[in-house]
């Protein structure tokens, strides 16, 4: 039979493209924020902060598109899950963008934080956060439930790195008194990166819901 509702199907696809584009932009933001942090590059940090305004515009655009589709097309079944996941995932992406902004703002305020040896654990944490966020968005774009599940599993690794980072930085606080303020800021950055991992897990769980209609309950958490 001939397919109907072509315009509606096209609009649903556009929502998914917008969410994917927003996710890519947020992932790039985290990546650049980490580069700025490691290089003490305040100019790059400023660019990351400016990019956050674009993410704020993108989420409003996605929300408006979703609301219009609900009002005009009454989506159900998988279509409805596209809308529900669009709302939820874009919120998590926006938070990821906010944390990239927070990291960049710290770099802009302070410049070079500490030498690379002391940044080692934060660097690892950042790489893990970028990896999780990028994989979550790839799972969304490619409808890949297995990859989404991998992101959920990576959360354990993230938690372990965060615990090490927290311990190492706490040690520096006591042994390197002149750098206390900077080390405290690094602790905040570590927390932002760990939160980015949590948002990536949320995205992965919405990808699983989108593709399978299965909700991941707290007791099932990886």
């Amino acid at each position: 039979m001939e397919q109907t509702r072509k315009e509606y199907i096209h609009e649903l696809a556009i929502v998914q493209e917008k969410v994917a584009a927003m996710g890519d932009k947020a992932c790039t933001g985290v990546q650049l924020a980490m580069e700025a942090l490691l290089a003490g590059d305040t100019e790059l940090a400023r660019e990351v902060m400016l990019a956050d305004d674009v993410l704020d515009e993108m989420i409003v655009d996605i929300e408006d598109s979703c609301i219009l589709l609900i009002a005009k097309q009454q989506p159900i079944a998988h279509d409805l899950r596209v809308i529900a996941a669009g709302f939820k995932i874009s919120t998590d992406i926006e938070r990821i963008g906010d944390h990239a902004y927070d990291i960049a703002k710290t770099v802009q305020d302070v410049g070079v934080l500490l030498d690379n040896e002391r940044l080692k654990w934060v660097q690892l944490l950042g790489a893990c956060a970028v990896d999780m966020a990028a994989k979550a968005m790839r799972a969304y774009r490619e409808h890949d439930v297995r990859l989404a599940d991998e992101v959920r599993q990576l959360d354990k690794k993230m938690d372990a790195i965060f615990a090490h980072t927290f311990y190492a930085l706490s040690e520096f606080v006591t042994t390197e008194a002149p750098h206390q303020k900077r080390i405290t800021q690094l602790l905040f950055i570590a927390r932002f990166l760990e939160r980015i991992g949590d948002h990536a897990v949320n995205i992965a769980e919405w990808v699983i819901y989108l593709e399978t209609a299965e909700r991941i309950h707290k007791k099932d958490k990886a």
């Binding site: 039979m1 001939e2 397919q3 109907t4 509702r5 509606y8 199907i9 989506p75 159900i76 079944a77 998988h78 279509d79 409805l80 899950r81 209609a213």
Partner: peptide, 19 residues
């Protein structure tokens, strides 16, 4: 049926893909 139909034909019909 309206959130997670099992048969693709059902999904295509209720979402207006044909009919």
């Amino acid at each position: 049926i309206f959130t997670n139909p099992h048969d693709k034909k059902t999904e295509d019909y209720i979402t207006g893909r044909f009919g």
